[in-house]
Design a protein around this nucleic acid. Structure first.
Lengths: 220, 220
DNA sequence: ACCTGAACACCGTTCAAGT
DNA sequence: ACCTGAACACCGTTCAAGT
């Protein structure tokens, strides 16, 4: 089977899925395809084009999933329809944890992402959004529209269990944060320090925004 | 003047400010300091530590600015206080456009960022937030808490003025998006395609979230 | 048309050696 | 204690050359 742009991009996704995005080098990608690194340049201009390409592959996978959803979106139903779409997109991205980072660095926008956004605007228009409100809504959602957010920090490491003395010193400098952590961790003693339920928090933020938009929509 | 961790990090910020983050290499950084690349390793463990370091330098600059704000935050005043803080943080980041991207890749969290977040939780507590609500609020704000969001795409390029024929073809595939763009661009004929006012959109999304939180706070 | 070998410029980093 | 020269492994990429 000869090489092709298609095969190169699919292999690139496989490499990133298996070894993470930092393992995706032109030489490693060629190896995956049983070819030499230089052969790739016949099918793609450079590595940037590979990154643009795999972003588009993932966005296409998202579109394939969400386009099978057939939810009513007229009037007040818009919110459930949009919510379902975004959470489905998120499920796809959870299978490709490197993808959000790649989307972030893309300056060229993926056609499949534009297609996704277009459908989202369509749902909001069904809900009675003005074009102006739909536009602001896209900005308000930001990366959440595609199903991810950028965590400020990963609570899994750092600030860990350094023993009581360091904890007391920390409580002095960070009274509010330590107080919050202790109380929230106390309420949910299962997860001692992996104390954030990503899915729950994502939905909380998403609903906060969707509810706010719905309120503006009604009074417009 | 001998090298020092401090000088290395300040020089790294200068290099990034001047030439962008991709211009920040160990060799270029050493040149800026009139030294050899290998000398840097006496003061920092590796490049990752440089990146952790400059993230912390910027976060410290943010703290220096926001700590001078003395706004009332009790009860309903919390929202104005938080809003002002976040918009001030944003002003600092606009002077270091590379910084959001660096924050994003940091897996080790900057002490100065933690300090910033702690103060933010304090303001919310002043406003009557439960620790639980403050915790969800941090996740809902996400990177917006620090004053930035990740744009889905940069409207300055792509989808540009490819003439009427391509536009008609685009309108066919992307009816909602093209319709939205045409209407919003029509309302604001100044900015033909740089049609998004970043500052306005940032504040719109921020206020949407803050208003939603305020409503939950009141009914709690 | 499609693939490759040799080579180049550029990384981050190690380590033994200088002062 | 602080800095450096030489060297290594690894990048992305060019280009002339193979089939």
């Amino acid at each position: 089977m000869p090489l092709s742009r298609e095969r190169v991009l699919r292999a690139a996704v496989d490499v990133a899925d298996q070894g993470g995005i930092e393992s995706l080098t032109m030489r490693r990608l060629a190896e995956e395809l049983g070819a030499e690194a230089m052969s790739l340049y016949y099918h793609v201009a450079n590595k940037e084009e590979v990154l643009d390409g795999i972003a588009d592959v993932i966005a296409t996978e998202i579109n394939d999933v969400v386009d099978q959803i057939d939810a009513p979106s007229k009037g007040p139903d818009w919110k459930k329809a949009v919510r379902q779409r975004i959470l489905s997109a998120r499920e796809v991205l959870l299978r490709h944890p490197w993808a959000p980072g790649v989307f972030d660095t893309r300056t060229n926008l993926s056609p499949a992402v534009v297609q996704y956004i277009d459908a989202l605007v369509g749902l909001m228009r069904d809900g009675g959004f003005s074009n102006d409100l739909a536009h602001h809504a896209l900005h308000a959602l930001g990366s959440r529209a595609l199903g991810f957010t950028h965590e400020l920090f990963d609570p899994s490491d750092g600030a860990g269990d350094e023993g009581g003395a360091a904890m007391l010193e920390m409580a002095d400098r960070l009274p509010h944060l330590v107080g919050m952590m202790m109380e929230v961790a106390h309420d949910d003693p299962d997860s001692t320090l992996g104390w954030c339920d990503d899915q729950f928090e994502f939905e909380f933020g998403l609903d906060l925004i969707l509810d706010g938009l719905d309120r503006i929509r009604e009074t417009a």
